[in-house]
């Protein structure tokens, strides 16, 4: 395939198929937020440090600001919007609420996706493993104390 500056891509997001034409330069996070209007995933930095845009691409946790939308062509994407089923919070979401693991809620979607990825790999992580699992997600409100508690509780 020769280089293109624009392409129609198809993605599956939380079980729903989408087809959109995107600029090659469009970041995956902008595609998700602006083009698909799934605004749960957030942007907190411009250097790939904060993790607010974390999503799962084909089951792998990534920061969607360090990936182009065009790279996601054909991929299966999971975002925070896909966690609750039929309006019921999943165990992790409920645990975040129970343990006051969120204040402003801005980092929360990315944090939840990192925790989701962690718990899929490791059903009973230690505190250190939890902290390593969310090391790529910055929270400026909670000092992480209750986030760690919430993830631990959800794993039990």
């Amino acid at each position: 395939m020769d280089p293109v500056s624009r392409k129609t891509i198809t993605v599956d997001v939380n079980g729903e198929g989408f087809e959109r034409e995107v600029d090659a330069r469009r970041l995956l996070i902008h595609f998700i937020r602006d083009d698909l209007d799934l605004t749960g995933s957030h942007i907190g930095c411009d250097t790939g440090n904060c993790g607010a845009c974390s999503v799962l691409v084909d089951g792998v946790l990534v920061k969607s600001c360090m990936m182009l939308a065009i790279q996601a062509d054909g991929a299966r994407i999971e975002t925070v919007e896909g966690l609750a089923q039929d309006g019921e919070l999943n165990a992790l979401q409920q645990s975040f609420s129970d343990h006051h693991a969120l204040q402003c809620g801005y980092c929360t979607p990315g944090m939840l996706m990192s925790a989701t990825a962690l718990l899929r790999q490791n059903g009973s992580p230690s505190d250190e493993e939890i902290r390593r699992g969310i090391q790529g997600n910055i929270c400026r409100c909670t000092g992480y104390v209750n986030i760690v508690e919430a993830i631990r509780a959800a794993s039990e």
Binding site: I43, T79, V80, L83, G105, Y106, P109
Partner: peptide, 19 residues
């Protein structure tokens, strides 16, 4: 008591200006 804000925020259903 449970925080009223949480349900929307943990589902990515908050509305921030950029949304």
């Amino acid at each position: 008591v449970p925080r009223k804000e949480d349900k929307r925020l943990v589902q990515g259903e908050g509305v921030f200006f950029d949304d």
